[in-house]
Structures are given as structure tokens and as C-alpha cells.
Amino acid sequence: MYLVKEVAQLSGVSIRTLHHYDRIGLLCPRKAENGYRYYTEENLAQLQQILFYRYLRFPLKNIKELLGNDTDNLAQLEEQFLLLTAEQKRLTTLIDTLAKTIQTKKGMIYMTTEEKFVGFRYEDGLAYQEEAIQKYGKEMIESSLDKQKGQEAEVTEGFNTIFQQFADNLVAGLTVEEKENQELAGQLLHHIRTYGFDCSLEVFAFIGKGYVGNPEFQRNIDKFGQGVAQYVCDTIQIYVQKESEA
């Protein structure tokens, strides 16, 4: 048995947060007659799972549902292992890209524009996986991720190439209605359908709005050039409108 102060020291989770988890029914210790909270080994095992999901940026509401609906603790741990392994691979790639960027700044190596964005993912980024599951359904997203296994480089390179071309068109002064941009929007939709899911025009329009509606999406895409995210969003809306009327 562990008191709340001991659990806080062991886990690094504040006492206030542990109390909050108790209030919302996420992690409920035993209550003694003196009012003290006592945590069992089972509680600590559950707290570990909560912290894994929190690291993966799952909302507390979803974590509560996951822990409440699935009695197979081993299956949950195995799923978390796969998610964290994917995150580790992504972070390793980003660290390598950052190291090369630093070397480039020091004049030690040269990086192409494409190399500067290796490791940045958009629709399928782990940081947005839970959000995508909520919007499109777990089965669809898991199917999408399965399609990408072993092809991560091609997926990322495809997005990088398309967004870089959008950035070039923006600098060149092309409007979002022009043929070059509309063709790029078609390429982007095809790329999502090839490596992701059977994306409808309605969902494609929603994704485009997400490029500016989601601050992290916008920051990543605007790395190709200031205003590129809005430029792509506007292009997609015109593309969807034209295709819907065709």
C-alpha cells in the first residue's frame, strides 16, 4: 500500500493530478476511515498505463474509456509498445534531421530542401493519431497505418514534394485557382488515398481546413514557407468545389 505522497514521489505525478484522476474516476485508490488514500500495486500498474497514454497525447476521457472497456492488460501494453516504438523511430529521424541542420548551419555539410523536412509527418503523424481516430474511426486509421508500414519514406517524401511545390508556386505568385495548384491538390488527394484511406472530397476539404485550424499542422507546413498552410487550404477548397460540381 502506498500513500498519495509516496505515489507522487515514485511516479513524478503531482499530488494535485492524482487527486484529479481520482475525482474523474480514472485512478481510484482505496479510502481509509481516516480519509487517507491508499494505492495498491494494481493502482500503480494502472497509473503506469495512464502515463504511457498521456505521453502518446491521448486525452484523459479516451484513456478512461480504453482502461475501462479493455480487460486485457497485456493487449493494452503490447499496443502501447507498438505506438511508442513508432514514436521512437519518428524521434530518431527528427533528431538526425536536426543534427544535420546544425551541421549545415556550421558549414560542415549541405542539406537539400527535401532533407530539411525528413521526419515531419502530416495526416498520419502520431501526435494527431488519436484526433484522427475520433474523426474517421479506429478501423480506418489502423488500416491506413498498416498500408504505410515499410513505406514511411515514400509517404513522407511524397508530402514533402507536394508541399514544397505549393511553396514554390506561392513565391511565384500563382493564385490558388490556377491549373498548377489545382493539379497539385489532385496529387495530394491521390497521395492520401494511396497511402492513407479512401478519402472523400468532403473529408479532403476538412483536412485542408485542418492545415490552418490545427496550430501544429500549420507550423509544420509553414516550414516550407510563410503562408503555405493557408495557401494549400484555399487551394483544396477550390479543388473540392470544382470536383463536386463536375
Rank of each mutant, 00 (worst) to 15 (best):
E178G: 00
R54K: 13
I63T: 03
A45L: 10
K64G: 02
E78L: 15
L10W: 12
Q165C: 04
L201E: 01
Y211N: 03
V232C: 03
A75V: 05
K138T: 02
K147W: 06
Y53C: 06
I15C: 04
I24M: 15
T85M: 12
L56M: 06
Y38S: 04
G35P: 08
I192E: 11
R57Q: 02
K31C: 00
Y2L: 12
E178Y: 03
E131I: 08
E183P: 00
L27M: 11
Q129V: 12
Q134R: 10
Q48P: 00
G227Y: 07
Q237K: 04
L174M: 03
L184Y: 08
F117M: 15
T113L: 14
Q164H: 14
L98V: 13
Q129C: 04
Q226K: 12
L145C: 00
Q103W: 01
G68D: 09
G137H: 01
L94A: 11
V228L: 08
L189K: 09
T71L: 11
L94M: 15
D198V: 11
D146F: 03
K135W: 06
N169K: 04
R16V: 09
K106H: 14
T40K: 00
E183R: 09
G196P: 01
Q148Y: 02
Y195Q: 06
Q226R: 09
E243K: 15
K105D: 13
H190A: 12
V13R: 10
L26H: 01
E157D: 09
A8E: 05
R219L: 05
M111C: 13
N69S: 10
T112F: 09
R193Q: 15
K135R: 10
Q187A: 08
K89V: 04
S144R: 08
L47T: 10
T71P: 02
E216N: 06
E42C: 02
V171E: 14
E142N: 05
E142D: 08
R193W: 05
T175A: 11
G125Y: 08
M1V: 11
E33D: 13
F163D: 09
L84T: 13
F163Q: 11
R193E: 09
T85S: 14
E130W: 07
L67Y: 06
A229W: 05
F81W: 14
L83E: 14
E177T: 07
Y136E: 06
F224M: 08
I24S: 06
K149T: 06
N160T: 14
E157M: 11
R121D: 12
D146Y: 04
Q88M: 10
E177P: 00
S144L: 11
Y136H: 11
T40V: 02
E78K: 13
G107C: 11
Q164E: 14
T101V: 10
V155R: 04
M108L: 15
I133P: 00
A86I: 10
V118P: 00
P29Y: 05
E114K: 15
N169C: 09
L145H: 05
R90F: 02
Q9C: 01
D70N: 12
I238Q: 15
K100G: 04
D96M: 08
Y53T: 00
A132P: 01
Y239P: 00
L82V: 14
D222T: 07
M140Y: 00
V13L: 12
R193G: 02
S11I: 11
A246R: 15
V13C: 12
K179I: 10
